[in-house]
Design a protein around this nucleic acid. Structure first.
Lengths: 220, 220
DNA sequence: CGCTCACAGTCAGGTTGTCGGCAGGTGGGG
DNA sequence: CCCCACCTGCCGACAACCTGACTGTGAGCG
């Protein structure tokens, strides 16, 4: 379903979480400490939801989340913690939480809440600024026409349009359009971007792909 | 802040909610029964978040929510209910909930959760004195416009705005914006400050970077 | 089997934006 | 008044990016 970044130091809890998440069909990126989370959950990691403990051995999960946000990681965050006071919760939300669950938690509920968080960002746009992406026909439509896209072109464009207005990093695009672990030269990305741009122009698309130097691409 | 649709039949709870929501600066559309909610919360009602009780006198809040979704109302839904079993919660999420809070609830927490739901559909980013830094888009926004920043510019501005009102030393800025151990001439810092100032001016930013002679910079 | 076509990926050359620094001007504090 | 910190305009180097042409591969077809 999605890629979940899990940061939890206690082995027993981690085991329960990992099994539950895998059972629900999620892919996982696991960290045991705040420092590890900072390394593994970078802005270019294709993470859909972050599950974060607050009481980590090396740091405060809230600080970790704020650090991640400041480097551009914008995946929604669910705090999973023993701190259940209202004040703790408010601090969690202030630190950028999208949800907050108090231990001991019920696995099924956590899974449901994760579904909500993943769905909320996925549903953000079959149609973006006068452009309609048709996954069945592998085509894009605008007011004035329609073009076919090749499979790779389609996956790339889908990755970029899935976040209208946001910059999508080149690595993220690669992760979305090519199978895991495959190497593609930077130049290949450029070529595909060019082809997509040409096709979009051929149907007088109102929105185009703008490049953000040193970062990636963005629909505007 | 936003328009909240509240559907709650019990007067005591409703009163607490209404006062709290108004106090937080929200506008309200109030319903006392499911039927009233269906009438008032239509697809064209400009609602940002729906606060729904489940145990309504005339109907089940979950059915009401599903009916609203089927007519195109897509505002996020927060269920506020006495039913706290895991099974109840799962049913709530299955019915389309974005969040689920069990009574007795803490008003401050509910307000925080509402903020999350409204913020997710609006603009994101830390806001400092009328300026919004968006790490995802690599941009700064003011009331009148938006500019893109280059990676280095963004890191510098982020370092300075991270401590509003305080003076940030030149060394601190360098440490935040350049890789460890790299030497940059004092003049280079000035150049970047200048570029950032120019970009901020181009969007009529209400706050600017003031220099503190011999120490560093500060947002005012 | 050989031809054609579409797609993926590469290469080389040109173009542009970012970075970092220089040189000269400006202004405030001693 | 002088010095030093800072401002400003400007320029060169370099990397990132764009562009058009080209190669390799595999499917479809007569």
């Amino acid at each position: 379903m999605g890629v979940i970044g899990v940061c939890e130091d206690q082995e027993a809890i981690r085991k329960v979480l990992l099994r539950g998440l895998r059972g629900a069909g999620h892919d996982l990126i696991v960290a045991h400490t705040g420092a590890e989370a900072l390394r593994s959950f970078g802005a270019d990691a294709p993470i859909d939801v972050i599950l974060m403990d607050i009481g980590l051995p090396d740091s405060d999960g809230r600080d970790v989340v704020q650090a991640l946000k400041s480097v551009g990681q914008d995946a929604p965050v669910l705090f999973l913690t023993a701190l259940g006071d209202t004040r703790d919760k408010l601090q969690g939300f202030a630190a950028g939480a999208d949800d907050y669950v108090v231990k001991p938690f019920d696995l099924a509920e956590v899974l449901a809440r994760i579904d909500v968080l993943t769905a909320r960002r996925g549903s953000r746009g079959a149609t973006v600024g006068g452009l309609v992406l048709d996954p069945v026909a592998h085509a894009v439509r605008s007011a004035t026409g329609e073009v076919m896209l090749t499979p790779t072109e389609f996956r790339m464009l889908a990755a970029i349009t899935s976040r209208p207005g946001e910059v999508v990093r080149r690595r993220t695009v690669v992760a979305a359009a090519w199978p895991d672990g495959s190497y593609v030269s930077e130049n290949t990305i450029d070529s595909f971007i060019r082809r997509i741009r040409t096709k979009l122009a051929s149907i007088d698309s109102p929105t185009g792909i703008t490049t953000v130097r040193g970062v990636g691409f963005r629909v505007s």
